[in-house]
Simulated assay, not measured.
Amino acid sequence: MKTLLTGATGTLGRAVHALLAERGHEVVTAARKNADITVDITDPESIRAMYEKAGRFDALANAAGWVPWKPFAELSHADVLAGLAGKAASQVELVRQGSAYGTDEASFTLITGVTTRDPILTGSVASLANGAVEAFARAAAIELPHRQRVNVVSPTVFTESIEAYGDLFAGFEPVPVRLAALAYVRSIEGHQTGQVYLV
């Protein structure tokens, strides 16, 4: 199975890459740097160029996304738009364009996070963008052509990231990033669509 992995160089992307490789996937990595293909998922033209270079694929797994983390009172309109572009519109574009490049049974796996259902201070844009992605996936699941599928992985804070983000997620139970990677496997190798896999 040929899997195109965007956001391949981050904590989550590396874990997904390792697990998919263990399972025999042909993994083509894409990221801003240090990957098989250079891509900026906030740029539709960059996404198009990535798909052209990668060619036909069986699965697109995205582990990339960015939002500003700021107190609500300090958020600007530009911050909100940047967060929507960095986490929501970018992932919509991966699916919108990718449908034409994927096989008839291609799957798309997107990323959100715990703030969709459990908000934290400074995370209002994260909650907004994550909620948009999950709503989009449920809607796109009934409109994708052929037998293509789309799902979302929504993890809590990772054990590997708790030192950097622990103060924001006080009282949250961290999970090993490998558990989130397993949810990607479930999405890619399974048969469900329109699902949000909580980790």
Rank of each mutant, 00 (worst) to 15 (best):
L4H: 02
G131F: 00
V16I: 14
V150L: 11
V92D: 08
A59L: 00
A59F: 01
E26H: 09
I162H: 14
R32N: 11
I142G: 10
K2F: 07
T156P: 03
E160K: 10
E93G: 03
V125Q: 03
R117I: 01
A18L: 14
A31F: 03
K53I: 06
G123M: 00
A8S: 15
K33E: 12
A31G: 09
A88V: 01
L144F: 05
G7N: 11
T156S: 13
V114Q: 07
V152C: 06
F57K: 02
R14C: 06
A100Q: 14
G86A: 12
V150H: 02
H77C: 09
Y51D: 04
G113A: 06
A181Y: 07
A31K: 01
R96M: 08
R178E: 14
F172W: 12
T6G: 01
D167K: 15
T9V: 04
T103K: 11
Y184I: 12
E173R: 13
D36L: 02
R14H: 08
Y101T: 06
Y51E: 04
A61T: 01
L110M: 11
V196C: 10
A141S: 15
D79H: 03
D36Y: 00
H146I: 04
F136Y: 15
E173P: 06
S90W: 04
S127Q: 09
A85P: 01
G166T: 07
A135P: 00
T116R: 02
F172N: 05
L182G: 13
R186W: 13
D40Y: 11
G166Y: 03
F72L: 15
V80H: 04
F158L: 11
E160V: 09
Q97I: 05
V153F: 14
P71H: 14
